[in-house]
Design a protein around this nucleic acid. Structure first.
Lengths: 344, 344
DNA sequence: ACCGAAACCGCAAACGTTTGCGGTGAAAAA
DNA sequence: TTTTTCACCGCAAACGTTTGCGGTTTCGGT
């Protein structure tokens, strides 16, 4: 069960010099003669010496590791974010430790404890739908370790950098799009309201309704808490019962949108002729369905990259505390068959 | 940038006793009096002492960390595997460090180096499509650190435990299913042949063809290397040119199957009446499309769990070397509209 | 011949734990 | 009273690095 086991001491003994000299030689310290450096490096190569990062961490108090907590990995958007995180972390010489909270508050606090125990240099977090208590985040800050939120971010009680998309404007322009396609009775399948993103999307939707002076009634906003397929199906059936039946549905996410699609098909209605559907996130399969789903593309990879870049920036600005920044990424409406009223 | 900073020494100084005593008291060592233990634990609680895992690792040579390398995270199947891994790792008190190779050989070897440098206790790997040289895996073994492969596993030159599904039988029963549904000219979109899984699926397909004495010609097997949507589309168009046009296509994976679906629709043919389609992996969206895709469900979560369980077993069987085991998980055919010839 | 400055290197402590071994005091046995 | 036996605790080394400080040479300059 031993690792490679060749240490600086071994090199030193072999060469009849001191460990300090070996250490310095390996890092090209000016105090060491070129000749010695040559010898040391040659031997290190030969015995394939590899520095013990654990020992280095113990001294330097840095692990070159960043911790990531996301609600769930089996989720198209989050998996793209992770991918982005991994990419820049790798390029900057960091490795990532990762946990999923499974949308469970308890697990989330245990995860943060675990990552702190493993002495990650910094943390990247998108918190669970359940999380309303932020004490575990405050604990992180108390220990002075950098923390960046992405996608699901707290309103600014914690002073952390955040990476988000412009949910409000995206939702608003979703309404714009539907109006252009001549759908004027637009309903919304809203997400969990303790998540800022859901609130913003709902708010953007309402803004769009007002801006265009569209018809609206209470029933047009259906709150589907979990936002899964079944909820989308159920909520859409509610919408179909309304006397002023909407002719477009803007869903908080793609999966709920597909629930809506099924409900509409089951009701014998046509998409988009009778009712148009629009999702949010542009999941991989949005282009594979029939009709294809119009959706709002969230730049997941970019978000991951931005979050990681920001965190590493804060990590490496040793002394001076950088003031937190809120970076907002742009989305794109991907127009497909589920809303296109006219010809292809 | 300091962590909580309270150490065993601090506790010792505060209580006027030695660090060794504190250490022992905290681990409930019999040499320490109940009274002292009480005092130590009380103070530890008060100052919220947390053991420095780095220091512990340095002594014990164990990090309680397992490394995972997968081809890509933005992939339904692999994300489910990771999810399973995380779940059991968490339960057993391990955290996971994770890298994606992006199907790139060079990145894969760099990743293994990085994980080894971070002194993970063991590794879980599914290698890239490009990988044909296994030296970096041998290096891991040389260092005597446990390694378990899953899904994409080497043929037994390395002596490692593996977790796979029964690709051969699954493919064979896919053919069985198609025959039952009365599709007797079955083509196959094959995957990259340096991957065992692809070879097995192809072999299982061929076995099915022979068993049922079905019509076959060379052109019925199309090799789509990358196995993505475009390849599936392209290869299917090749199939459509054949004089004895197949009336069923069994694809190596779901995405390719959707490429096939598009090609068939574009050709003005009906699914499954003219040509049935069957995928492999049962991606999330298989039930959301029109028609829904018949596919073979791989138990991703189970695979992840099994792999992690096996690795941890080997990790904790300190001395005696466990002989490698090959665990094969069962799949299920999920029958949907893309192959169902009859009613419903 | 002496001094000063380079150039090169080693000592030892430190990071926070763990642990073998030995030491103390007091109670029990002789 | 002396010895043995406990119960309890501290010393110090070790894990593999890094680094401030000081020590030896060697050499060019006066």
């Amino acid at each position: 069960m031993k690792q490679s086991a060749v240490t600086i001491k071994d090199l030193a003994k072999e060469l009849g010099i001191s460990p300090s000299t070996v250490s310095r030689a390996l890092k090209d310290h000016p105090d060491i003669s070129p000749e010695t450096k040559r010898l040391v490096n040659a031997l290190a190569e030969k015995l394939d010496y590899e520095p013990n990062t654990i020992a280095m961490s113990l001294r330097s108090k840095r692990t070159n590791t960043i911790g990531v907590i996301i609600p769930e990995i089996v989720h198209f958007f989050f998996s793209t974010v992770i991918s982005g995180i991994e990419e820049v972390a790798y390029k900057k010489g960091y490795t990532v430790m990762f946990c999923q909270s499974n949308e469970d508050y308890e697990k989330e606090v245990i995860d943060t404890k675990a990552l702190l125990a493993h002495r990650v240099d910094g943390l990247l977090i998108s918190y669970s739908k359940e999380t309303t208590n932020f004490d575990h985040f405050r604990e992180i800050q108390r220990k002075n370790i950098p923390l960046v939120f992405f996608d699901r971010v707290p309103t600014d009680e914690l002073h952390c950098s955040t990476i988000t998309i412009n949910d409000f404007e995206s939702a608003e322009s979703a309404v714009d799009h539907l109006v252009i396609e001549n759908h004027l009775r637009i309903a919304h399948l809203a997400g969990p309201q303790n998540l800022n993103i859901s609130k913003q999307r709902l708010a953007g939707y309402k803004r769009g309704i007002e801006k265009h002076k569209l018809y609206f009634e209470e029933g047009y906003v259906q709150y589907c808490g979990k936002g899964d397929f079944e909820e989308g199906y159920r909520c859409t059936n509610e919408l179909l019962k309304l006397s002023e039946r909407p002719n477009a549905i803007f869903a908080n996410n793609d999966v709920a949108a597909y629930g809506a699609m099924k409900a509409i098909k089951d009701a014998g209605l046509k998409i988009p002729e009778d009712i148009a559907i629009m999702g949010f996130s542009n999941w991989q399969f949005a282009s594979l369905t029939e009709p294809q789903l119009t959706s709002i593309a969230q730049p997941g990879i970019e978000m991951g990259k931005a979050a990681a870049r920001r965190l590493i920036l804060e990590l490496e600005a040793k002394d001076e505390d950088l003031p937190p920044v809120d970076q907002v990424l742009k989305t794109d409406i991907i127009v497909r068959g589920s809303t296109r009223s006219t010809q292809k």
